[in-house]
Write a protein that binds this DNA or RNA. Sequence first.
RNA 1: GCGCCCUUCGUCUAGCGGUCUAGGACAUCGCCCUUUCACGGCGGUAACACGGGUUCGAGUCCCGUAGGGCGCGCCA
Length: 503
Amino acid sequence: MPPPSPRLRGEVSCAAACARGHVMTVVTRFAPSPTGFLHIGGARTALFNWLYARGRGGKMFLRVEDTDRERSTQAAIDAILDGLTWLGIAWDGEPIYQFARSARHREAAEQLLAAGRAYRCYATPEELAQMREAARREGRSKLYDGRWRDRDPREAPPGVKPAIRLKAPLTGETVIEDAVQGRVVWQNENLDDLVLLRSDGTPTYMLAVVVDDHDMGVTHIIRGDDHLTNAARQKQIYDGLGWSVPVMAHIPLIHGPDGSKLSKRHGALGVDAYRAMGYLPAALRNYLVRLGWSHGDQEIFSTQEMIAAFDLPQIGRSPARFDFAKLENLNGHYIRQSADADLLAAIERVLPHLADGAELAAKLTPQLRQQWLAAMPSLKERAKTLLDVIDGARFLLSGRPIRLDDKADALLTPDAKALLGAVAAELDAVDPWTAETTERAVRSFAERKGAKLGAVAQPLRAALTGRTTSPGIFEVLAVLGKAESLARVADQATSAKLEPRVG
RNA sequence: GCGCCCUUCGUCUAGCGGUCUAGGACAUCGCCCUUUCACGGCGGUAACACGGGUUCGAGUCCCGUAGGGCGCGCCA
């Protein structure tokens, strides 16, 4: 028999399920602890779980790991639900709150105790801290030394409430067949007796996760590989309880651009921050799915495509670095791909999340909406984010006389202003007023003057938009309309006569 | 300190022992298009961390080294 591949990815439990004689329904879960926002790494984990379940007709549950009463907040729960919703990741059923299930967790601990797979530990936190300190000083392992493992409970110091610890195997090895990491082996002497129930009777994370995943029928645990060591300890709890272990898939973490831990400066922001930066959910999903996972050379995935293509064997084992430039490029792609009306709707949705959003929303009259829509085809060509689209539309939003930026101002020399006066007269005769008719007029004007088109177009752009870059100048003319265009040109042309530039 | 994981262009990755003079995408550089900025088109620079094995043959398998990451709580 040939030696088994070191990466048995997924085959293990499939075989187990098939042996049970029925088709296994895939159940995944996303289990954030509500101690902060939904960060980008969590969003990717949720995405992977969602894609895996959706691609197999399975379910993805959301479990809020709120057993840490001190640090869990409602605001964080809201932020996580809001983030997932915005990203378009829909969980099945109602969110499950772990804290509410503590009675069941306690029951499992009692079961372990009754079976002799757990014991009461009367060591105080101070005592344990001392033990670790001594271990550190002597260069020994900081693991719990099992001092109460075989001790007679009658020796328990009076008044000390015990914690319940798992009686983990002392010898042999604990093995995880991970769908991403392959076969990972721990010598049991490197794993200690973890706490199942705290001395106040509340369950620890390690116990709660195992019990919940089992009770929820979770078949595939897809999570960050910061949990890989936990997987070994959880395996021991599964064994103690006599339960089968779900398929595990520990995905590498996302790092910052320098390879270190992802910091806020690097993109470890809540997904709400990405929304406020003008990224589209579809773009973020596409970017995230390609971080650590690939499907040949394919870069662009519709939601349907990624659901169909996503699978565990194509997940890499090395951590990926977060790269804003690629996200931007992808976002630009999705913006260009969007229908004009959808884009405007997306902008209106993001307005409440922007600093000057209310101000902008107030300006969105039906007429302005029409103009914006008309300008959208050329606006989206030039934008990487929704913020860019908004910025590109500033010339529509600002009233006369428009403010010129420095470059535009420098461009409007006395000569240029004179030229504007002349071209204004030309444009005044144009009717009907369209991009085509204005272009014809301006081109023929430039030709007669023996000037390059740019020599006329740039001053026009400055006068019309207040900037030196903008959508095509004839589109600007058309969108602005004849009256507004001529007025803006006149604003600059006449100011030349009234206020000759000094110096 | 102990345990576990990782290492292909700057970045995301393809590659599952010969088809690799290592492919794609982003970024970058150049050219073209052009009224600006973009978009688009064409082209260029650029990588198998290092050292040993195994093999007729290694980016692909094994072992070291170096570097990076994660974990080691009565946190999750």
